[in-house]
Amino acid sequence: MKPLQASEAPNRAALAAAILLVALPAWAHEGGGQAAGFLSGMLHPVSGLDHVLAMVAVGLWGAQLGAPAIWLLPVAFPLVMAFGGFLGLMGVPVPGVEIGIALSAVLLGVMVATQSRPPLGVAIALVGFFAVFHGHAHGTELPVGASGLLYSVGFVIVTGLLHATGIAVGLVHRWERGRLALRGAGAAVTAAGVFFAWRALA
């Protein structure tokens, strides 16, 4: 760095003084609740293990199915889940939400464990059907006072990242041992789903 010249010193001192004198903006209306909305939206999809397992299982199954399902499922799921969230926000009742969420883990886990390859339309319909339950649960639980837009942004980003995690893990499908590990993971998701279903029914 160039040493400070005597002729420059006053200007730099004046600049430093000017910076000190600048009034900080008041940040009025910036909204403390907005950060809370973003964080609550981000944390909501990971707040329950049943949600997390189902989201990751969607990615695992997509990786097993390969193209185009590996791409179409993550494109379709957020939209359908947002539709479920919309229904929840509007107060439209969806029966058996908790059981539906638990069953989603059971069935998606079975699909991964058995390496099922139904027609693409059936796979999308199955994933979309259960996405409504997940979205509805999140929509009805929007915290009071949170920023709706930032909550939605955080929620969708984390949901997408959970899918991406599933897809990334599912790439081990190309190796024999990886395929076996994936099937084991599917069985574990199914077992957890059975537990959640039992708890929801109890």
Partner: peptide, 28 residues
């Protein structure tokens, strides 16, 4: 192809955000 799908996935995320935000706005 995967780059184009990434753009499409980003579009679906924005649409999902819009749908949730619509519900929030209508509820409000």
């Amino acid at each position: 192809p995967w780059q184009r799908v990434a753009v499409r996935a980003a579009g679906s995320w924005i649409a999902a955000i819009g749908l949730l935000y619509l519900g929030w706005a209508l509820k409000g």
